[in-house]
Simulated assay, not measured.
Amino acid sequence: MLLFLGVVLLALRGAAVAQCDGKPGPDGLSWEFDEGEKQKFSLLRFLGNVVTPDLVNDTRRIRTYVRDERFGILLKRCGEMRAIDAIYLKALKIAEHSVGRALFLALVATLEHRDVNLKVPIIGSVGLPLTFEEDSTFHARMRNLPSKIYVDTPPEGDRDKLQHFFGSAYIAYTAESREFARTSGDLVEWGEAKFVVGGVDDDRDRRANSQGERFGHDLLTIKNLLPSDYLNLPYRN
């Protein structure tokens, strides 16, 4: 009996490892699932996709992938780092292996704010929308975003650090300069503290920025790198 239980546990462990490595498990689930397969054919949607810019369609696809319940299941099974890698790899596939485009898609897939309130002299607070998702789809995506990213992640999670990471990676890659990305990140942190309602200059944001800078810059020469290779790197202020 004990031998039988041992075999079962080993098989289950092997199935989980397979799913986390990208191969389908016994239930057929893997990170390569088709985010659009559950949608019924719609002529209006088809015609809309034809006339909609590719970047908008690609943004819809990557966000649909992240908010899919299958992504949430795999996140729980395989952990945050594997899920973050999966977001980038899916973005890379959608972008047809255009690294710069994939980094941008990973950024919009992980945007954690619906809008930001800016401090404007005389007028006061002005809301600036960052996404036009419906409430239900936005919150579904938020629930599935990896949050336990660092060893010092607070109880409320670190979902917002992903947008810093991929944003800095995108700038470093497209500008071909870590220094430009670092300057941009510093300006964002300064501006957030000065002009955003409730914003602060956060050293933990700077850590994510720095790791993203290195990731994006290194992708210029080595194309098969993954975010998890960099999110565990030490950070020096």
Rank of each mutant, 00 (worst) to 15 (best):
R114H: 00
D115G: 10
D115P: 07
D115C: 04
V116M: 09
N117L: 04
L118S: 05
L118W: 05
K119A: 08
K119W: 11
K119M: 12
V120I: 07
P121L: 07
I122G: 09
I122R: 07
I123A: 13
I123Q: 08
S125A: 07
V126D: 01
G127R: 11
L128R: 02
P129V: 11
L130M: 10
T131R: 13
T131C: 11
F132A: 10
F132G: 11
E134T: 14
S136F: 09
T137A: 09
F138L: 05
F138P: 02
F138M: 07
A140V: 03
A140D: 15
M142G: 00
N144V: 13
L145V: 12
P146I: 12
K148W: 13
P154K: 12
P155G: 02
E156W: 09
E156I: 06
G157E: 00
D158M: 05
D158I: 05
D160S: 13
K161D: 00
L162C: 06
L162W: 07
L162A: 06
F165Q: 05
F166I: 07
S168F: 03
A169F: 01
Y170F: 15
I171P: 00
A172I: 02
T174C: 03
T174S: 09
S177Y: 00
S177Q: 06
R178L: 06
R178G: 01
R178T: 06
R178M: 08
E179G: 10
F180R: 11
F180E: 13
G185Y: 02
G185L: 04
D186E: 15
D186R: 15
V188Q: 00
V188E: 09
E189R: 07
E189A: 03
W190L: 11
G191Q: 08
A193T: 03
V196C: 12
V196E: 08
V197H: 09
G198Q: 01
G199K: 00
G199R: 02
V200S: 14
D202T: 05
D202V: 06
D203M: 13
R204P: 11
D205E: 02
D205S: 01
R206H: 12
R207T: 10
Q211K: 05
E213R: 14
E213A: 01
